[in-house]
């Protein structure tokens, strides 16, 4: 066999599988986004089968674009993703620097820190919203009730009681409510993904130029200016990568949204698509195409960055 055919032959199954996986469903979404297509309609039964005769042009896109729910979903998607990124990168940086020194039990600390990343999303959400954040039975509820009880006891004290009766009772926060459910999602995903940021930054810190650092110390640079002028520039690339990978992953958050409040107050684009898809397939598909565009904006930058290091 010639030198060229064999390598191609070996790649063919992988390429073909991915090609079909990408093109067929995406092509169908594109097609559905241009036709009137609903699953149930007593009035217009002809719309329940996908067909070119129900062509709607950009009608579905217009419908979605003018839908308040769509903009709210974009807002929620962007708000949730940006908050998670800011929190994970800040925490990740701080903790990576913290454990970059050697100290007793560093191996165990690393193991403890990385663990949340391997928890499956459904368990993460169930664990946080029930056992930790629940306003009555979760740790939050128990803690608030406990503090209120202590306060009540202090109010009965002679003399000092008058002072403590000025303090209000604490009220637990319900994290399933419209105003707060997005924060619950941000909190649980941040918990899960900070380990990822730590791991990446830590790996990168280990390749930092130590001689340069020692020179800076001899020159009398303090810890902050070392971090600011040497470490942070060194981490520029890993930070960019952590930001982009998380953006892509978190733009498709679903399980956490579903479990926390079924989209009440935290409905993002994937969740909106899921809701449309229970009946209005045309609108779901048009929203899907918008989601693809949003993800691609991030993906292009990421791929460029990875591409540069590919063949070194």
């Amino acid at each position: 066999m010639s030198n060229r055919t064999m390598p191609r032959l070996l790649q063919t199954p992988a390429v073909l599988l991915l090609l079909v996986w990408m093109l067929v469903p995406l092509g169908m979404t594109l097609f559905f986004s241009f036709i009137r297509y609903v699953l149930n309609s007593l009035r217009r039964p002809e719309w329940t089968t996908p067909s070119l005769e129900n062509w709607r042009g950009f009608g579905n896109y217009q419908f979605v674009w003018n839908n308040d729910g769509f903009w709210l979903a974009i807002y929620n998607s962007v708000f949730i993703v940006c908050s998670i990124i800011i929190l994970t990168v800040t925490l990740g940086l701080a903790i990576a620097v913290l454990i970059n020194r050697s100290f007793p039990g560093r191996g165990i600390v690393r193991v403890l820190l990385i663990s949340p990343f391997f928890v499956m999303p459904a368990v993460n959400a169930v664990l946080w919203i029930n056992m930790i954040l629940d306003p009555v039975l979760g740790l939050q509820g128990l803690a608030v009730a406990g503090i209120n009880e202590i306060l009540a006891g202090l109010r009965d004290l002679p003399f000092l009681g008058a002072f403590f009766s000025l303090w209000p009772d604490l009220a637990p926060i319900s994290f399933r409510a419209t105003q707060t459910s997005a924060y619950a999602v941000i909190l649980m995903v941040t918990w899960q993904w900070t380990p990822f940021a730590i791991l990446i930054f830590m790996t990168s810190l280990q390749s930092e130029d130590q001689q340069q650092k020692e020179a800076a110390i001899l020159d009398g640079a303090n810890a902050w200016s070392q971090f600011r002028n040497l470490t942070l520039p060194h981490l520029g690339r890993p930070i960019a990568i952590v930001v982009m990978i998380q953006a892509i992953f978190h733009l498709s958050l679903y399980a956490e949204i579903e479990i926390v409040s079924r989209g009440n107050g935290n409905k993002n684009l994937p969740y909106l698509i899921g809701e449309f898809a229970t009946n209005n397939i045309g609108a779901a598909s048009a929203t899907g195409i918008f989601a693809v565009i949003l993800a691609n904006i991030v993906a292009i930058f990421l791929l460029r960055m990875i591409g540069k290091t590919l063949m070194d």
């Binding site: 979404t29 559905f32 684009l269 994937p270 898809a277 899907g288 195409i289 693809v292």
Partner: peptide
């Protein structure tokens, strides 16, 4: 292909 949002192709 990994960066395609899954929800976009849910119905198909």
């Amino acid at each position: 292909t990994k960066m395609l949002p899954a929800a976009a192709v849910l119905y198909p």
